[in-house]
Amino acid sequence: MNRIISPKNSQKIMKTIFWGSGILTILILIFIIGYILVNGLPVINFNFIFGEPIDNGASGGIFPFIVSTFYVTFVALIVATPLGVGGAIYLAEYAGENKLVKAIRFGSEILASIPSIVFGLFGFAFFVVYLSFGFSVLSGGLTLALMAMPTILRTAEVSIESVPKSYSEGSMALGASKWQTIYQVILPAAIPGIITGIILGMARAIEETAAILYTVGAALQVPVSIFDPARPLPLHLYTLATEGISMPNAYGTAAVLVVIILIITIVTNALVDRYTKKMMGR
């Protein structure tokens, strides 16, 4: 028949293309991470991690920025975790399927998709100015909490919903109240998934830049009070790179950030892995 390429040949060609696209994707990741690490790791030493910055970060270390990152993230999680997990329990266990639940889901979907710079605008207008928290760990942390919450909510909801119905039925049959059942039976079974959600929320808070651009300020010192300004790593990296302060230190900071994110990813995966294996083993 008058075909230019026979089905068998197009099968071969397409298969090659599919393999190629898969391998290309892997190479892209390896290249980006590899490039950052190769250029950044040599910069990293004890002084770089634990030292104070000198000349706006042109030399010296990044200790205040590491502290800022974890401090701001901590504040974000303290707020986002109860909201996210509570919301997840409500959605999974109390709310049926009604308009309100649909609205909550859509709300958290929007929350998850709003551009981070819009969170930045809101954080500035609301926390910094309206509530007069100023440029501070608190303002930045609260802004990030809003971004981390939907991640925690969704992951936790899925893991609560995947707890077999028979568990709660067993508990209810023994005369336990609904909350007792949730607290003593459902949550323990769902905890690995909930922790995964919290870690993912944490990753989102650690990597975020645009949302904190105008909420945490730009301190060069270690923040102590939650009303102190801070400068988390991504923000520091942005400043170093765009203001041409120090390329080697920018690479070093980028490498630290990449390593943190890699560790989080690996830990989450190990957790999920162990969890699924445990579930399968039963």
């Binding site: 393999w19 892209i28 991470i33 990597e207 830049t209 942005y238």
Partner: peptide, 28 residues
């Protein structure tokens, strides 16, 4: 199409790409 081994490699890759901070992409 991907055989299981390849999938085991590609899944975390995609997760990794999703996890890289925007500012790192910008820097790159």
């Amino acid at each position: 199409i991907a055989p299981p081994n390849m999938r085991k490699l590609l899944k975390p890759t995609i997760q990794g790409l999703a996890g890289i901070p925007s500012v790192i992409y910008g820097f790159f």
